[in-house]
Nucleic acid binder design. Structure first.
Length: 838
RNA sequence: GCCCUCGUGGUGAAAUUGGUAGACACAAAGGACUUAAAAUCCUUGCCCUUUUGGGAGUGCCAGUUCGAGUCUGGCCGAGGGCACCA
């Protein structure tokens, strides 16, 4: 066996890759982008998977003649740098730069086809300068506003979170229970694009349906109408929003949010204040959210029913009505809304059924009926279907001028102020007269101060002695800087544009360049960004195209691929402490011992690798041990890319062994002695290789890299079995070279080394599949729908010829000879099925 | 509660989109080589049969079809998203 040192070979080809990029000036453009990493310290297996998938595609496209842009950068602002700097007494900048250096060298070890000349880092002032510029442009377009609202406060990170960053009532990163706090904040008015963000989802044909659905639900469009209710004996009018105006005759109460303007009337009412306080408390814990009881505060006021002059409807404040959705007021129709039903039951309010559920009207409802049916008990709406009743009542309401139809979105504006140091400074200043204005663009970038005390209480920039003192350039007046920094999701909302012209000086991007490269042809990353990052990036693209009129695209990512996670079993020792896999010795699939003292280890289920559970495997260790190609090979081989994959050490060991065999076979062929030649054997060999080229090509196009790899195992076996057959060296080597080219995207180092061994000079083309080389096909022979034989015959034979062949040569003949055949189902080149009457 | 996705060997998974179920890999068992081990190679994988063969079989129940892992309806189970959104 001819051995190869992967480490040496990989170093050699990495030098080659760093000089030879994937540019094909004549080719069609292909922008291949993987989500850029946060520089946390070292790369993890999730990165390996993400970037290997991207690399396969980038190289494949290049080999097929595309002009490929394949950049990489760093999502370099963020809280961990501040935490780390407090612990290690390192400046966040130093910490981040060190991490970038390490991770960059690790990524290079993987043999990725990245053009490092395009590298960007979001914490560089050359990057965030342009981000500040975009911010000011957005401000000038009315896409930025400052509002005092209740915000999601993360008590661990001591900062504000956007709605999208709260998962099950907890911070997306800290996992701490989020609190409600009233603060003045900067917002991007993402809701100005609600309709576009929703509608354009339909144009994203290359996105997973699942992600589009998640965004659709998040944007949450609903259609209904506003109705004004007069308050009896008062001047006030309560405006409510409903999607079920057809149930207006079933209205039995009005419910208001405790923050509704009408609450001002009760600001001296202690009972109300106590009620309000209890409402603010619910919602702070997950448990409270889950079993939140419907609570109400009776105002003793009544509203007039807009269509029943004699009817009085009690008005309540209720804990389940939100001020920031709709008008902060609803009418309750208990018969047809489960929440209203619970509320009415609790406070003994009327329950009037107005939509027939088909049952007897005398039966008391046990729960709200929300289905379709005919309207009843509703005057002029009686007999109509729900749908018809909706449009009729809205028309009536508009005629009477007591309301209007309205479309509402669940999506809220994106709060972007963060009380942190390590982020992009917000380029706004506060003048002494109270006005707030953007800084002059000529003053950009507004740089972060280098000297900072991160142990100060509250916002570090605010606590800085003089950073915030400044002067308004055009008036010369004293001013104070905004000391909040931008949410780091802003940094990643436009980096894909910057990659197209990363060194462009005077503006965020070169217009011509982005019109050439954008949109991203293939974007690859984790599903966890289905809403957050992907929605924000879409918003940015739409926002920028508002003031850069010549931009030719309105969506950033043409095709999206969401890869699965890398999982591993977790291990605990007898005392319940987590153990790293390399501290554990596996005995068999369900038992293991601790290496240090041979004590028994408890094996947990395979879960996404995480530092807290220590179920991680270090990519660099693996690369050093088995080679980058073996690591790439394994991570692609075991599961389809969109599903989770379980890391297995035996898996990567066998990948390494297989690659050794691939090298050995190449070496063997390079020394092969010339054989006697049989033309027929050669033709069969070539046609088989040809069909493999077709299959590999197809599997890559379908993102079925695990299938590609299974095929390579088959191909290896086939080639090995063919070594001593009557094939000329020329034919054999040419076929082998084709196969090695197919392997370039997967194992670029070894594939190049093998090609070099065969004196191949051109690494930059993809083998072409020739149609119709194979003129034999496999046909299934069925009797009564059961497969009895598979026969290999000439292509395009007709029914009769096949029947003759079967009765002579097939083991299925015993079913057919001397039998009456009732019916024959024949699908050319696929199947023949004889139905015999019994 | 609402919405979505998925159920195939001991395990990860293939299956030309309605046409050979389990490719390929991991693990296991048996065998060959070896003084032995490692490495390597081969075989096996549910039931009946010594073999040739034959049968059952893709979560469960029904349906459509010459033919269903794939299509339809119902049920069961797992995972994910949203959650007082009016």
């Amino acid at each position: 066996m001819e051995r190869i040192s992967f480490q040496a070979v990989e170093k050699k080809w990495q030098k080659y890759f760093s000089k030879n990029k994937l540019y094909n000036e004549k080719g069609k453009k292909f922008y291949c982008l993987e989500m850029f990493p946060y520089p946390s310290g070292k790369i993890h297996m999730g990165h390996v998977r993400n970037y290997t998938i991207g690399d396969v595609l980038a190289r494949y496209k290049f080999l097929n003649g595309f002009n490929v842009l394949h950049p990489m950068g760093w999502d370099a602002f963020g809280l961990p740098a501040e935490n780390a700097s407090r612990i290690n007494n390192l400046h966040p900048k130093t910490w981040t730069e060190n991490n970038i250096k390490i991770m960059k060298s690790q990524l290079k070890m993987l043999g990725l086809s990245i053009d490092w000349n395009l590298e960007i880092s979001t914490c560089d002032k050359s990057y965030y300068k342009h981000q500040q510029e975009i911010f000011i442009d957005f401000y000038n377009q009315g896409l930025v506003s400052r509002k005092e609202t209740y915000v999601n406060w993360d008590p661990v990170e001591k900062t504000v979170l956007a709605n999208e960053q709260v998962i099950n009532g907890k911070g997306w990163r800290s996992n701490a229970i989020v609190e409600r706090k009233k603060l003045s904040q900067w917002f991007f008015n993402i809701t100005k694009f609600s309709e576009e963000l929703l509608n354009d989802l339909e144009t994203l044909k290359g996105w997973p349906e699942k992600v589009k659905l998640m965004q659709k639900n998040w944007i949450g469009k609903s259609f209904g109408c506003e109705i004004n209710f007069e308050v009896e004996n008062k001047k006030e009018i309560i405006k409510i929003f409903t999607t079920r105006p057809d149930t207006i005759f079933g209205a039995s109460f009005i419910a208001l949010s405790v923050d509704h303007p009408l609450s001002k009337k009760f600001k001296n009412d202690n009972k109300f204040l106590r009620f309000k306080e209890s409402c603010n408390k619910t919602g702070t814990t997950e448990e409270a959210l889950a079993n939140a009881d419907k609570l109400g505060f009776n105002t003793e006021l009544f509203a007039k029913h807009p269509f029943l002059p004699d009817k009085k409807i009690p008005i309540f404040f209720a804990n389940f009505v939100l001020m920031d959705y709709g008008t902060g007021a609803i009418f309750g129709c208990p018969a047809h809304d489960q929440r209203d039903f619970e509320f009415a039951t609790k406070y003994k309010l009327e329950i009037i059924q107005v939509v027939s559920d088909g049952g007897s009207q005398n039966n008391k409802l046990q729960e709200a009926f929300t289905g379709e049916g005919k309207i009843i008990n509703s005057d002029f709406l009686n007999g109509l279907a729900v749908r018809e009743a909706k449009s009729k009542i809205i028309k009536k309401i508009e005629e009477k001028k007591i309301g209007k139809s309205r479309t509402l979105f669940r999506l809220k504006d994106w709060g972007i102020s963060r009380q942190r140091y390590w982020g992009c400074p917000i380029p706004m200043i506060y003048l002494e007269d109270g006005s707030v204005v953007p800084v002059d663009k000529s003053e950009l970038p507004i740089e972060l101060p280098e000297n900072i005390n991160l142990n100060s209480k509250g916002n570090p920039l605010d606590a800085h002695p003089d950073w915030k003192n400044t002067v308004h350039k055009s008036t010369g007046k004293k001013a104070l800087r905004e000391t909040d920094t931008l949410d780091t999701f802003v940094d990643s909302s436009w980096y894909f544009l910057r990659f197209c012209s990363p060194n462009h000086k005077n503006s965020p991007f070169d217009q011509e360049k982005i019109n050439y490269w954008m949109p991203v042809d293939q974007y690859i990353g984790g599903i966890e960004h289905a809403i957050l990052h992907l929605l924000y990036s879409r918003f940015f693209t739409k926002g920028i195209s508002k003031f850069s009129k010549d931009i030719k695209f309105s969506e950033p990512f043409k095709n999206l691929f969401t890869q699965g996670m890398v999982c591993h079993e977790s291990y605990k020792d007898q005392s319940g402490k987590w153990l790293y896999p390399n501290e554990v010795k596996k005995i068999n699939s369900n038992s293991a011992i601790k290496k240090s003292d041979n004590s028994k280890v408890i094996i947990g289920p395979a879960e996404s690798m995480s530092k807290s559970k220590k179920n991680t495997v270090d990519p660099e260790t693996m690369i050093n041990q088995y080679g980058a190609d073996a690591v790439r090979w394994f991570i692609l081989s075991d599961s389809p890319p969109e599903k989770d994959v379980q890391w297995s050490d035996t898996g990567v060991v066998s990948a390494n062994k297989f690659l050794q065999k691939v090298w050995n076979l190449n070496y063997l062929i390079s020394k092969r002695e010339e054989k006697d030649i049989d033309k027929k054997v050669e033709v069969n060999f070539i046609s088989k290789i040809n069909s493999y080229i077709f299959k590999i090509d197809k599997s890559i196009n379908n993102f079925r890299f695990n299938v590609s790899i299974a095929l390579f195992y088959e191909i290896y076996k086939f080639l090995k079995d063919s070594v001593n057959t009557k094939i000329s060296n020329k034919v054999f080597v040419n076929s082998l070279k084709d196969i090695m080219k197919l392997m370039i995207p997967f194992i670029p180092h070894l594939a190049h080394e093998c090609l070099e061994l065969h004196n191949c000079k051109n690494f930059n083309n993809w083998p072409k599949f020739k149609k119709d080389v194979l003129d034999e096909i496999k046909l299934a022979v069925q009797i009564n729908g059961k497969t009895r034989d598979i026969i290999t015959i000439k292509k395009d034979l007709d029914e009769k010829e096949i029947f003759n062949y079967i009765t002579l040569n097939s083991k299925a003949k015993k079913y057919l000879i001397d039998k009456k055949i009732g019916k024959t189902i024949f699908v050319k080149n696929k199947i023949i099925n004889y139905i015999l009457p019994n």
